[in-house]
Design a binder for these strands. Structure first.
Lengths: 148, 148
DNA sequence: CTGAATGCAAAAGCTTTGCAGCCAA
DNA sequence: TTGGCTGCAAAGCTTTTGCATTCAG
């Protein structure tokens, strides 16, 4: 997903209808780096669209995934989250605050798939999840430790 | 988790009680390379333990995770799976048959965490999930393609 | 107009919780 | 004997489904 307009074009080109609900969901995702869950999307939209339903959000996200505009991420074992940034990259999840951050392949290169593996398996996707403590939580913990 | 005896020792040393149900669950996990889900464990045990409950299995798995004898894996978005092999390794999930295989870090090395990252984050775990088509499904597909 | 999308409600999984009774230590 | 464990049932979440209604094209 790049811009709202490009995403809409992509859907249109696949014969899908452009509804206000779909636009609203696209807007939420495009303006977000927080990898929202369905519930979070619902909360963000329910002010402006009091009648929007979970079913619509689920179905729209499925549609956007199929169109390749959004990716499902399973770093949170309790629920699916959605990422509008579809270029290959990694995810970090803070075990303290729960926040999920992107890490680019420039910072951590994707592991090379050896010839042996590529011969045996047909590989379509490689996902790297990193768990730990994020910079801001780390800083806070350190402050507490050094408190009198 | 190495052997049944070692696992039992570990639990005992933590002051946990050794019940028939816990032993049964340990036995299922130890003898398995299939990364079973709670439901699969329940199915495997319900013959011998007709009264065993899901609650017991969930709680026992939580206990075993806390003791470091088992790892939760989230490669399957629908449910948690459990892995008795606690040494670091990767997981492959076949998109055709759903099977989950282990891949050792000797075959695919873990990505190196750059100094920059290690300074900013405190990293406790790195998980690599690989998706694609497994050798046996790949073979079958190829046979179909070359069928007359 | 017409088929696709929405929204509601109900249902289907998976997982957790509360609690009485039981049992390993 | 006793605190921890089990098993049942109920509840809590997330996600899916069916269907009448609505609306984009």
């Amino acid at each position: 997903m790049k811009t709202r307009e490009e995403t809409i074009q992509k859907l249109r080109s696949k014969g899908l209808k452009i509804t206000p609900q779909r636009i609203a969901i696209i807007d939420v995702l495009e303006g977000s780096t927080s990898h929202p869950s369905v519930d979070e999307i619902y909360q963000m939209l329910s002010d402006r669209y009091p009648t929007i339903s979970y079913a619509t959000i689920y179905k729209t996200l499925e549609t956007l995934c199929e169109a390749g505009e959004v990716r499902e991420i399973n770093i949170d074992p309790h629920k699916k989250r959605y990422d509008p940034f579809t270029h290959p990259h990694h995810h970090f999840r803070c075990l303290v605050c729960g926040k999920i951050e992107d890490i680019s392949p420039e910072e951590i290169p994707f592991p090379e798939m050896p010839k042996k593996i590529k011969e045996k398996y047909e590989i379509t996707d490689v996902t790297l999840y990193i768990y730990g403590i994020c910079p801001s939580c780390k800083k806070q913990q350190h402050q507490h430790q050094t408190d009198p």
